[in-house]
Design a protein around this nucleic acid. Sequence first.
DNA 1: CATTCGTGAAGACGAAT
DNA 2: ATTCGATTTCACGAATG
Length: 323
Amino acid sequence: MPHPPTDEREAPRTQSETDNSEAERTCPECTGALVRDDDSGETVCGACGLVVHERTIDRGPEWRAYTPEEDQAKRRVGSPTTDLMHDKGLSTTIDWRNTDATGRTLNPRKQATIHRLRKWDQRFRTKSSNERNLQQALGEIIRMASALGLPTTTQETASVIYRRALDEDLLPGRSIEGVATAALYAAARQADTPRTLDEMTEVSRIDRLELSRTYRYLNRELALDIQPADPVQYLPRFSSDLGIADETEHRARELLNAAKAESIASGKSPVSLAAAAIYAAGLLTEESLTQSAVSEITDVSEVTIRNRYTDLFDIADPGHLAT
DNA sequence: CATTCGTGAAGACGAAT
DNA sequence: ATTCGATTTCACGAATG
């Protein structure tokens, strides 16, 4: 399946470039300061060495052809070399002696450099099997993320989390798919665009229970420290899925904020509260929203919606019931 | 007839032991 | 690993419009 020289360059590039502008100046993993390495074109964390941004990837062919003959001549099989492969397949080994090729001892500054190189060389080689594992996981993460409409930044966060899990040997006994899904779930929550467990399991091959277990495991072992989701974060998505008026969504937001202020929200499932708030707001704005409709798209049972939305009315403003 | 509301049994989860 | 308390869900029937 040869790809045409020109067509492929413009089409499917949409969101990825635009949001790379002046992103964060600290490492997402250890919050150390980021350092720009001009030799490799990478941005690297000064503290833990995490590579944050690799060079922009150009998936098109790196050559151009102006005649059919030229096209035939330049066409070849395989992808262009990219920076995604750390050594482009050309591994080397570094000697352990602190001498140069003629046997002379290196000066201290050079020794330090070599020491660093050796350390990284070691890491790269011992990680080669992990890298293959990572490739597969990243593929899954990207696939699921696009199915859920999650942006590239979230995918990057997910891959960082996955990498950490890999580094800490958290994988044995767990499926790659499971950890990948859990990492993406965690990343979505960290980015304040949470997806429900049910939504995740729809695009993943693992079931809800395993996802939930794996996520908790990651959360604890990696000390991800993710706060419980804010119900408000679910509102925009649910609202647009239900096709309700802005007015209604706005009322729902007010109800949730009131609930938060009265600390009614703690201990309850955030998704339930969001669903209940939408239904309650629908009553207030006379929008014909049935419990079953809300239940349908939020995956919250009608019973729970009933229980929660009465709570919301209780604390919000007891005078509103007549309208 | 559709929608809403209430109830009790049952499952799942987090915390504590 | 088990137990306990709170929350959510399921199944059902009743009331309301």
